[in-house]
Simulated scan of single mutants.
Amino acid sequence: MITDPTFYLAAIPAVILVGLAKGGFAGIGTVSLPLMALAIDPVQAAAILLPIMMVQDVISVGAYWKKWDRRNLVLLVPGAIVGILLGYLLASRVSMAAFNVALGLIAAAFALRYLLRPQMPPKQGGSLAGYFWGTVSGFTSMIAHSGAPPFQIYVMPQKLERDTFVGTSNAFFGIVNWLKFPAFMALGEFTTENVTTTAVLLPLAIASTWAGVLLVRRVPAEPFYKFIYLLLTAVGLKLIWEGGTALLGAA
């Protein structure tokens, strides 16, 4: 088990944020891995977080059981499988800095467009777009547990009912996280230290997930979606900053 107090200063808020995200505040957990990476290696942080998220997925999927949109899952999950495989095979060869800048620009532009034009009519996503954004989401989830922005870019224009949106998000990432487990196992990251650290953080993870489920149901649908768009804008800007800084540092 990790005993360094500095690690827990980063890990505790990170786990709470993931729990709130799993409870319904989709996207807020994207900052969790970078937060933990301030204290430990990012790959180790990802390995500690994955089993936590898998347990949280069981809770969140159960809380929104059968409230998912089946069409979205049918389109997104096959792409996500491809993305996870690509992430496992190509992680060392892909410039994540450039990728983050590109994804950040797309996410921020997408979110700002809908914030500035909130009355846009619902728009059903196409099949090819679903496969594409599912692949991108699976890839970014495998690399950095940050699959929410691509998922939201595809699903949010559909303006699903709040519980359907949350249920679809939970079901999709529940499937994705369990599919990622064999890849992380193959990487040899589930060491005794990592597994025991995960076990220590699990009670907090479970409590924060239930808190997210209870809190999100108290938020009216319109402010909820505005919050998600604002959050997506912030995440996009964060990706641009991180990727741009890394590219400039490498220049």
Rank of each mutant, 00 (worst) to 15 (best):
48 I>L: 11
245 T>I: 08
210 W>E: 06
31 V>Y: 09
6 T>R: 14
197 T>M: 10
154 Y>N: 13
34 P>Q: 06
157 P>K: 01
187 L>R: 11
18 V>D: 05
131 Y>C: 09
89 L>E: 10
40 I>K: 01
42 P>G: 03
58 V>Q: 06
141 S>Q: 12
29 G>C: 12
114 Y>L: 10
57 D>K: 04
31 V>P: 02
28 I>P: 01
30 T>Q: 08
20 L>Q: 00
98 A>M: 11
65 W>I: 14
112 L>Y: 08
233 T>Q: 00
66 K>W: 08
136 V>Q: 03
15 V>R: 03
235 V>H: 00
160 L>P: 07
93 R>G: 02
235 V>L: 03
67 K>D: 15
4 D>C: 12
128 L>V: 12
5 P>N: 09
26 A>Q: 01
146 S>L: 11
39 A>D: 04
1 M>P: 13
110 F>T: 04
149 P>T: 01
246 A>H: 11
119 Q>H: 15
145 H>P: 09
196 T>R: 14
3 T>F: 13
37 A>Q: 04
98 A>E: 08
226 K>R: 15
208 S>M: 08
138 G>M: 07
26 A>D: 05
175 I>N: 03
119 Q>E: 14
164 T>P: 01
139 F>R: 07
35 L>M: 15
98 A>K: 06
210 W>A: 08
150 P>I: 05
105 L>I: 14
23 G>E: 01
